[in-house]
Amino acid sequence: MHTIWKGSISFGLVNIPIKLHAATEDKDIKLRNLHKECHSPIKYEKVCPVCDVEIQTTDIVKAYEYTKGKFVILDEEDLAKLKKENEEKAVEIIDFVKIEQIDPIYYDRTYYMSPGDSGGKAYSLLRKALEESEKVGLAKIIIRSKEQLAVLRVYENTLVMETIHYPDEVRHSGDVPNVPADDKVTKKELDTAILLIDQLTTEFEPEKYTDEYRTALLELIESKRTGQEIVTPVDKAQTSNVTDLMAALQASIDKTKPKKPAARKKKTPAKAKKEA
């Protein structure tokens, strides 16, 4: 597994050398843009709209637009110095909390953590301490020139680091338009909805969920590549357009009821006597 970052975890006076590995991978199918006439890949060039010339990488500087059309230029030396000063902090655990206190809206990306050289015992100690205390560590880390808040927890006997958003990066739910302030539902509607939830409740088995669009797209690509006949799949049965809430709930419950095994037909006396 490829190492993307090397450093250490520190909490109190304990220091654990670790390596970071991406825990997830992007399996989106990347499609290229081609020229329709000759099927050549399209090039995207950096061009200055004022000078009307193509710009080289060495001609580009970074800047912050503090107001429309007004910029503050940031030198590479300043950015490099700032990055170095912050990187020296490594992964510093600043607090321990219950994971239930962190809403999933804060989570960003997941990384596996493996022990560095001579860090095995300290790694095991932190893992065991997190398990026994039923806590997670809150830490800060610099990744790709950005300071991020992170959660350290145990997943299948491995330390995992989840980068999380800062509070000011999460938009306020009160700004979401058209959210009803009151629950204008009847008890019958609520009881029926809860019954539907109960019927659809199951154990979480991630293996049974697949990306159906990606699978279909790969099949389409392979069919075109090999010159096979492309077969259009039959559309799934369309959901009936039920506008009445109770009718929709009842229809959903009827649809999700477990099917009863077919009852065996009883033999008539005459038929039973004939078979004997």
Score class of each variant (00 low, 15 high):
104 P>A: 04
91 V>R: 00
88 E>S: 14
182 D>V: 08
236 K>M: 14
117 D>F: 06
128 K>R: 12
163 T>P: 07
229 E>L: 01
257 K>V: 00
101 Q>K: 14
123 Y>S: 05
134 E>Y: 14
64 Y>G: 11
175 D>V: 00
173 S>P: 09
103 D>K: 10
250 Q>M: 06
9 I>V: 13
260 K>H: 07
202 T>R: 15
153 R>S: 12
38 C>I: 04
89 K>F: 09
35 H>W: 03
75 D>T: 15
239 T>D: 15
79 L>R: 15
168 D>F: 13
261 P>V: 15
19 K>C: 11
249 L>R: 08
30 K>Y: 03
241 N>V: 01
24 T>S: 10
202 T>V: 12
226 T>G: 04
52 D>L: 12
187 K>W: 08
235 D>K: 13
95 D>I: 01
148 Q>E: 08
210 T>A: 05
213 Y>P: 02
110 T>P: 12
11 F>S: 05
40 S>Y: 09
169 E>Q: 14
101 Q>C: 07
88 E>A: 15
30 K>H: 12
174 G>L: 09
179 V>N: 00
73 I>Q: 14
270 A>L: 12
37 E>I: 13
192 T>P: 02
244 D>G: 12
274 K>G: 00
18 I>C: 10
146 K>T: 08
191 D>K: 10
256 T>V: 13
218 L>I: 02
185 V>H: 08
257 K>D: 02
24 T>G: 03
16 I>G: 05
148 Q>L: 13
104 P>M: 04
161 M>P: 01
6 K>T: 15
254 D>Y: 03
33 N>D: 04
126 L>K: 09
203 E>G: 08
188 K>F: 00
262 A>W: 00
154 V>E: 11
48 C>F: 10
191 D>M: 07
213 Y>C: 00
139 A>M: 03
263 A>V: 08
198 D>A: 14
20 L>W: 01
141 I>L: 06
165 H>G: 13
177 P>E: 04
207 E>K: 12
156 E>M: 09
148 Q>M: 05
22 A>T: 08
193 A>R: 00
219 E>Y: 00
102 I>T: 13
78 D>K: 06
272 A>Q: 09
78 D>H: 15
57 T>I: 14
184 K>F: 08
27 K>E: 14
142 I>K: 02
72 V>Y: 06
207 E>D: 15
231 V>R: 05
223 S>V: 02
189 E>S: 08
16 I>D: 02
60 I>V: 09
110 T>D: 10
132 E>D: 11
129 A>K: 06
261 P>E: 15
273 K>V: 05
150 A>W: 10
38 C>W: 05
174 G>V: 03
15 N>R: 10
167 P>D: 11
77 E>W: 03
211 D>V: 01
26 D>R: 01
124 S>Q: 12
147 E>D: 06
143 I>A: 02
242 V>P: 11
23 A>W: 04
268 T>Y: 10
49 P>N: 03
242 V>M: 10
220 L>V: 02
89 K>I: 11
142 I>S: 07
